[in-house]
């Protein structure tokens, strides 16, 4: 078991578009302060930002728990949104259920989950239609 160094908690507010993504920025800053390798920081920040925006866009917000230990960063983002009906389809590049409004915001290109998969070391998604989704992302430091 690795020693837990830092635990961070954030709420994703569904009504504040300009603040969406702020938690990812804060975690990035924290990782910089800890002197983590910049390539690992970027992987973490992109994965978390995409997942944070997903919760904002699709699920009326949610909450984020981040655990930074000696050898890994674990990010768990949970929401009580509509859930993902077909996860295999959602993992495909270019597939999106986002509205035109979301596309106008620069998201909904169907790259969110594929990007998280691409940049994380481990990705686990638990989802149930009508109940919500929990996305668990792990990035290893060493």
């Amino acid at each position: 078991m690795s020693e837990n160094l830092i635990n961070l908690y954030y709420v994703i507010n569904a009504n504040d578009f300009s603040a969406a993504g702020e938690a990812s920025g804060n975690v990035k800053k924290k990782l910089v302060q800890l002197g983590i390798d910049p390539a690992i920081i970027k992987k973490t920040a992109i994965s978390m930002y995409e997942a944070e925006m997903n919760a904002f866009i699709h699920a009326n917000g949610g909450e984020i728990n981040v655990e930074i230990s000696n050898n890994r960063i674990v990010i768990v983002i949970s929401d009580k949104g509509p859930g993902i009906a077909d996860l295999d389809l959602a993992m495909k590049e270019g597939y999106s259920t986002a509205s035109d409004k979301v596309r106008e915001m620069g998201f909904g290109a169907g790259m969110g989950l594929p990007n998280i998969k691409r940049y994380s070391d481990e990705l686990d998604i638990q989802t149930e239609v009508g109940k919500g989704t929990t996305v668990r992302i792990i990035v290893y430091i060493n």
């Binding site: 578009f17 300009s18 620069g106």
Partner: peptide, 25 residues
């Protein structure tokens, strides 16, 4: 966000705070 490079300039016609957040990430 699908492409990682260094010393990048982002050109965009999208105007909202998420452009800056994306740049930060």
């Amino acid at each position: 966000m699908a492409y990682v490079k260094d010393n990048v300039l982002l050109l965009t016609g999208l105007i909202n705070p998420q452009v800056i957040r994306t740049a930060e990430v």
